[in-house]
Design a protein around this nucleic acid. Structure first.
Length: 590
RNA sequence: GGGGUCGUAGUUAAGUUGGUUAUAACGCCGGCCUGUCACGCCGGAGGGCGUGGGUUCAAGUCCCAUCGGCCCCGCCA
């Protein structure tokens, strides 16, 4: 039998062949995707990362090759030498990219056999536990391969952009120090220092600031980060950030350069032009108008505050909620006659998840409403609400009355839910928004103190520093998030570079000097040695890839992801370790 | 920590109010077939229903517990 690698190199990828190769002798290597053995002529769809091509074994082109071809089964690894030919008249397959041509095989080597795969790569709905256990086979699916190719392109475009703009990529340690604020750390026991632990970084935050102190001026890194928190469709315990930090800049510089990055990424990866600059929303406006600080603005349903209209409502419940300091807000769905009474009632369950105790609705008619609460409302209230909502016949209004957090959460998520259900946006729509003027800190009920919203090194807006003691919750941060299609894809801030201001912030956060020293001492020291004004941002590379590939799960853009319980079904991690390993680390399982 | 949902041949699913040897399609194996492309035709093998208890004359079907996949709340500076 032929022994290809000893003498021949692959000349083409299967999927790249076309009519222009007709007549050429070529060498292909790939997997037999499917075989159609007619006893005489045998067809095999040969697949590689670029696609598939039909290869043909004719009995008259040699008994040895034809005999060997009979042994081919699905997923065998084949090398073939053959000639590209235009397919006979009427034999073209328009469903196949290479369907105009085929390869008549003259030499065949079965480089490896394969067990029958546990699932078909053509089938879409294979249960995820099977897919994840055989991830290396799952990754043979063209769709998943395309996602990873795009991810690679995205990373390359990013490196290219930063390199051209004078940034330096610096690696920062994975074995580092646990910092108590923020997410739960993944810990790594130290063998040399018994009872002590490294932590895997939640982000390279402090190190990139130190690099600014060192004078690198423009830093970036595509880097893994680790957070030991529960998983979601868009959250994995290890994920990848595009991490950036710059010196001698303001918010405007960062925003401008990052808009350039996004434009470059979308141009290179998807050949799409972005409209710059991106719109901006303050945190306050985002929450008021969309109920969330990561608003999806691909469709224009907005929350309307009708508290003042119903503060004295004939509907007792509204009145009581307002009297207790709550608010009443509403959203309007235009021309929503498609929703049945049953649909409307079921939406109550949807908002209940966010703490809403009810969901009132009103169907707008020419002269009145069809609504469970209509009979309670005074005519002038109805009129005012209609006006405030800009309601027209056949529209539906939804109301939630509760504390602001519940109202915004419920309606903010309901508008998303309805938009998806009613297809109010197109799959390719892109809506970027910068969210600015975040609060520097918010009061934590569980900790009974103010905590940083971003992180404790975020600079306050200087004119708000006067509010530190009187109204800490009103202090704005010099922080910004980038939101794309309702997904937070990045966030950052201008940092504090002066020790006195940093000390003030720690004080408001209730951190004593000693605590601050033990937690972030090395950063505080560094700030005393000529730290330049600096700031930065970090993007979630996985989430960005998800949006660009239309992936529904973050697992579809990660080669070897974890399950929702943070396990790897492929490698069976996490797993027990030997008693010897534990002893070496002075660890005992309790 | 909590809520929801799913778990039946290799895969995807069906399985009535509990009732003989648990269905189908695809895949797999064997045979036939020189133009198919989800090739076709003929034949065959393969599971005891995630796991462990329980109720019952009788359990994929009912009950309890438990494990696992997915979605969500909390959590994620």
């Amino acid at each position: 039998m032929a022994n290809f690698l000893a003498t021949d190199k692959r000349t083409h990828y299967c999927g790249n062949l076309n009519i222009s190769h007709a007549g050429k002798e070529i060498i292909l290597m790939g997997w037999s995707h499917r075989r159609r053995d007619h006893g005489g002529v045998i067809f095999v769809d040969l697949r590689d990362r670029e696609g598939m091509v039909q290869i043909v074994f004719n009995p008259d082109s040699g008994e040895a090759v034809h005999g060997e071809a009979h042994k081919i089964r699905n997923e065998f690894v084949l090398a073939v030498k053959g000639t590209v030919l235009k397919r006979p008249q009427g034999m073209e397959n328009p469903a196949l990219k290479t369907g105009e041509i085929e390869v008549i095989v003259s030499e065949l080597e079965i480089m490896n056999e394969s067990k029958t795969p546990p699932f078909s790569f053509d089938e879409e709905d294979i249960s995820e536990n099977v897919r994840l256990k055989y991830r290396y086979l799952d990754l043979r699916r063209p769709a998943l391969q395309q996602n990873l190719f795009l991810r690679s392109k995205l990373a390359a475009a990013t490196r290219n952009y930063f390199d051209k703009n004078g940034f330096i990529e610096v690696e920062t340690p994975f074995l580092t120090k646990s910092t108590p604020e923020g997410a739960r750390d993944y810990l790594v026991p130290s063998r040399i220092y018994k009872g002590m632990f490294y932590a895997l970084p939640q982000s390279p935050q402090i190190f990139k600031q130190l690099l600014m102190v060192s004078g690198f001026d423009r830093y970036y890194q595509i880097v893994k980060c680790f957070r030991d928190e529960d998983l979601r469709a868009d959250r994995q315990p290890e994920f990848t950030q595009i991490d950036v930090e710059m010196s001698f800049i303001t918010e405007e510089d960062i925003i401008k350069i990052m808009e350039g990055l996004m434009a470059q990424i979308f141009k290179v990866c998807l050949d799409r032009e972005l409209k710059l600059p991106f719109p901006r929303l303050t945190y306050h406006d985002a929450v008021n108008r969309y109920g969330k600080d990561n608003p999806d603005t691909r469709f224009d349903i907005e929350l309307v505050d009708i508290t003042s209209i119903v503060s004295n409502s004939g509907f007792k419940l509204f009145q009581e909620v307002v009297a207790a300091g709550g608010i009443v807000k509403a959203i309007k769905l235009e021309q929503a006659s498609g929703l049945s009474r049953k649909d409307l009632d079921e939406l109550k369950d949807y908002v209940a998840v966010y703490g809403a105790k009810g969901l009132a609705w009103a169907r707008i008619n020419a002269t009145d409403w069809t609504s469970p609460i209509y009979k309670f409302l005074r005519p002038e209230e109805v009129e005012k609400i209609n006006k405030a909502m800009g309601a027209k016949e056949s529209d539906i209004i939804f109301f939630v009355a509760d504390v602001p957090r519940v109202v915004n959460d419920s309606l903010g998520n309901l508008r998303l839910h309805l938009a998806k259900k009613l297809n109010l946006f197109k799959p390719d729509d892109l809506a970027f928004n910068w969210i600015t003027e975040f609060p520097l800190m918010e009061y934590s009920d569980s900790e009974k103190r103010y905590v940083s919203m971003h992180h404790p090194f975020t600079s306050p807006v200087l004119e708000d520093v006067a509010l530190f003691n009187s109204q800490p919750g009103k202090v704005r941060a010099r922080a910004y998030d980038l939101v794309l299609n309702g997904s937070e894809i990045g966030g950052g801030s201008i940092r504090i570079h002066r020790k006195d201001l940093q000390a003030q912030v720690f004080k408001v956060l209730g951190l004593s000097n000693e605590e601050a020293r033990s937690k972030f001492g090395f950063l505080l020291d560094a700030l005393e040695y000529g730290a330049p004004p600096h700031g930065g941002i970090a993007f979630g590379l996985d989430r960005l890839t998800m949006i660009m590939t239309h992936a529904e799960s973050i697992r579809d853009v990660i080669a070897f992801p974890k399950t929702q319980k943070a396990a790897c079904l492929l490698s069976d991690a996490p797993s027990k370790v030997s008693i010897e390993q534990l002893m070496e680390l002075s660890l005992k399982i309790v």
